[in-house]
């Protein structure tokens, strides 16, 4: 979805881009079990998560996603501006 909004990529191109950036196959990025592990390991945030201290959610997850996909996320950029870290 992010690649569609920010880069105007159509679905096939967007999936391939994400798969390449994450070092996964197309099948893997469409698989809920694989992606749950990847998202947890890489701090991308999960739809559901046990409340433990290491869980990433919201803004911190978006920092990680922007970095992994090599894209700008507007809310991350505005957060950095306001927090004085940009």
């Amino acid at each position: 979805m992010r690649m569609q909004i920010s880069q105007k990529m159509r679905i096939k191109e967007a999936k391939q881009y994400v798969a390449d950036k994450l070092g996964l196959t197309l099948e893997e990025i469409c698989d809920v079990v694989t992606m749950s592990e990847v998202r947890e390991d890489r701090g991308f945030g999960l739809g559901n998560f046990e409340p433990y201290a290491e869980s990433n959610v919201g803004m911190e997850a978006k920092f990680k996603i922007a970095e992994a996909l090599g894209i700008k996320i507007n809310s991350v950029e505005r957060f950095k501006e306001r927090a004085g870290i940009k």
Binding site: I5, V57, G58, A61
Partner: peptide, 9 residues
């Protein structure tokens, strides 16, 4: 909402 969610809004 943006501070609490991960998906695009």
């Amino acid at each position: 909402a943006l501070n609490k969610t991960t998906m695009p809004l």
